[in-house]
């Protein structure tokens, strides 16, 4: 589909045209960037590295009310999930992550919540010109200008954004905003390619994955696991903030006779995650939990869905309070193979 240009001065107007839909975009609260619904006065910030909390919540919210009910009655009410959503300015890794969790949510049955949200959601990505310190997307099948999972890709060319529709949904969105866009010429196309090449060169850290998915199970009792997990706090940071982590718990919550069934993010790094009612825990310490996290991403998922469940966004490494570094763990895995 044809490439266009959006002058940066027209950006607020572009965002304005999308009102009526629920627009999610990166915004700053003064200390950090996060994806939040765009209201009247909020300013969308596109000059950012990445948000700490990934935009996976657009399709898989941290708390999803599945249905509401009243105790003692058989009336059940399901939230409609019919709101159209546009996620603006998400990074290529986070979009690619959505194609990875997609496989899980459409595996044996189609998960209705995920599928309904996905149908109504248009993903407008923004290529990275300045990758972050721990970005290693290029090692795991992505890249700073990758388009997988996106409906529209944008790139910052300085004065203009390069804008290109990649799917019918993306085309529909650009049709709505057509009067703000101009056709991109060859120069713009070349500039975009040059920038993405430069961005790739700026990526400093990398992992080698060859042989890892097949080799990991054989390292089950390797001394590397107690070594890399000794200082782990068992918190939810590396999993909640991972764009491909998709574990959830389901709970009924009540207020008086009003009740709702919710599902919410869960984390395999929590000790209760595998705790049995008997008191037995098959993953009794952080060693087993860390081993599971890495195996799940780099082996089990590959086995089941033929793709590594890590897009190299670097969040787990940036934000782990005790410097548990997935790039270093994979280096040690590779060494032990």
């Amino acid at each position: 589909m044809s490439a266009m240009l959006l002058n940066k001065e027209k950006w607020p107007e572009f965002v304005g045209k999308l009102t009526g839909k629920n627009v999610w975009a990166p915004q700053s609260d003064g200390t950090e960037m996060r994806f939040a619904p765009v209201g009247e006065n909020e300013k969308v910030v596109l000059d950012y590295n990445n948000t700490r909390v990934p935009p996976k919540g657009a399709l898989f919210p941290q708390t999803e009310t599945m249905f509401k009910f009243e105790i003692g009655s058989d009336k059940v009410e399901e939230p409609p999930l019919d709101q159209e959503v546009v996620v603006l300015g998400l990074r290529p890794c986070d979009a690619r992550a959505m194609t990875i969790v997609d496989k899980l949510f459409k595996w044996d049955i189609d998960d209705p919540y995920f599928v309904k949200r996905q149908e109504k959601t248009t993903l407008v990505g923004l290529a990275c010109n300045e990758p972050g310190l721990n970005c290693f997307c290029t090692s795991v099948g992505g890249g700073p200008a990758a388009t997988e999972g996106l409906d529209v890709i944008m790139a910052d060319l300085g004065e203009n954004y390069f804008v290109e529709a990649l799917t019918d949904k993306g085309k529909a969105l650009l049709d709505e905003t057509r009067d703000l866009l101009e056709d991109a010429d060859d120069d713009a196309q070349k500039q975009k390619e040059k920038l993405s090449g430069e961005a790739e060169d700026k990526i400093k850290r990398s992992v080698e994955t060859e042989g890892v998915p097949e080799g990991l199970p054989g390292l089950w009792d390797d001394p590397l696991w107690p070594r890399v997990s000794a200082s782990c706090l068992g918190c939810g940071t590396c999993t909640y903030l991972c764009p491909t982590c998709h574990c959830f718990d389901i709970q009924d919550e009540t207020e008086g006779i009003d009740a709702r069934r919710c599902r919410m993010w869960d984390s395999c790094m929590f000790s209760e995650y595998t705790l049995h009612t008997s008191g037995h825990n098959p993953r009794p310490t952080r060693k087993e939990r860390t081993r599971n996290r890495i195996n799940h991403k780099y082996s089990y998922y590959v086995d089941k869905f033929d793709v590594i469940a890590c897009v190299g966004c670097g969040r787990c490494t940036n934000l782990c309070p005790v410097n548990i570094d997935i790039i270093e763990i994979l280096r040690q895995v590779k060494e032990a193979l």
Binding site: L233, G234, C235, G236, Y240, L241
Partner: peptide, 11 residues
């Protein structure tokens, strides 16, 4: 903004 990661508690 809290994501209830319980990092604050665990640390």
């Amino acid at each position: 903004k809290c994501v209830r990661c319980y990092s604050c508690r665990n640390v």
